[in-house]
């Protein structure tokens, strides 16, 4: 059994006036310890996959299943999926003025601890841990007092997502274009964060448009998602090939 098992997933995006099928029979198995990169043309369904796995409203599952360690995800509320160990790094993290980063992180870690029957972390220790994590990602700890993502630059928001990844330590990380909008140094910092997260018992789904990221986070598999399906899979060399040739030769 894989850590993440997605089988024959069909899903639609639901808008006011229509239901539009996006995922059309997607299969993906991520074993513990693996990093899977997902690439593919704009509009092919990569973010839809991330959203459906994390339970974002506005999507409808038409068929298929997705399990984490054998537990069905698609029936669960978004917060239950997170408590089970799913983490989505958002491509455009939202700003929440009035709720400080620190307070938000504490609420999150306390919820996860409660759900797992663990003791809630000691507050002083928690604050120290978060500060250290922030520094390790070149985020000024002063940011922690500000509203969640409030006034953060694009790159700072992405680093904040990785900080949350390291703090919450999920089983499965789905990173949607976490590399976009990062300068060269920040890209390395973020990649180092993801590599720090990786271990033998967790998994990463890395959605990206850029082969460059895969020089820093070396994937075990690279998949091409096109028109709602995975049409090609390979090792890291597939990304180099795509970089050279584009997607047209596959579709």
């Amino acid at each position: 059994m894989s850590l993440l098992d997605v089988s024959d997933l069909h899903a639609s995006v639901v808008t006011d006036d229509q239901t539009q099928p996006i995922l059309k029979g997607l299969n993906l198995a991520v074993a513990a310890g693996e990093v899977h990169a997902i690439m593919g043309p704009n509009g092919s369904g990569k973010s839809t996959l991330a959203n459906v796995l994390s339970g974002r409203p506005g999507y409808q599952v038409d068929n298929g299943a997705a399990t984490l360690d054998g537990t069905g995800l698609l029936e669960l509320e978004p917060y239950e999926r997170a408590q089970l160990g799913v983490f989505l790094a958002f491509p455009y993290p939202v700003e929440i003025p009035g709720v400080s980063n620190m307070e938000f992180l504490k609420a999150s870690i306390d919820s996860l601890a409660r759900a797992r029957g663990d003791a809630q972390p000691n507050t002083a220790q928690f604050i120290r841990q978060v500060r250290e994590l922030a520094s390790s990602l070149d985020l000024d700890p002063a940011f922690l007092k500000r509203g969640v993502n409030e006034g953060f630059s694009g790159g700072e928001k992405k680093r904040n997502e990785i900080m949350q990844l390291l703090l919450l330590d999920p089983k499965l990380a789905v990173l949607d274009e976490t590399d976009s909008g990062l300068d060269i140094d920040a890209l390395k910092v973020v990649a180092a964060g993801v590599n720090r997260f990786r271990n033998a018992s967790n998994g990463v789904v890395l959605i990206t448009h850029y082969q460059r990221l895969l020089d820093y986070i070396v994937p075990d598999f690279v998949h091409v998602l096109s028109n709602g399906r995975i049409i090609e899979s390979g090792d890291k060399n597939l990304a180099l090939e795509l970089e050279a040739k584009g997607y047209a030769w596959l579709t």
Partner: peptide
């Protein structure tokens, strides 16, 4: 904003409370 909090494991009621508190705290 609600989904962002939910996706971090915070349940519906707690997330709503955080957001409404944040709204006033400003």
């Amino acid at each position: 904003a609600l989904f962002y909090l939910l996706s971090r494991g915070i349940d519906q009621n707690a997330a709503q409370a955080l957001l409404s508190q944040g709204f006033l705290r400003q």
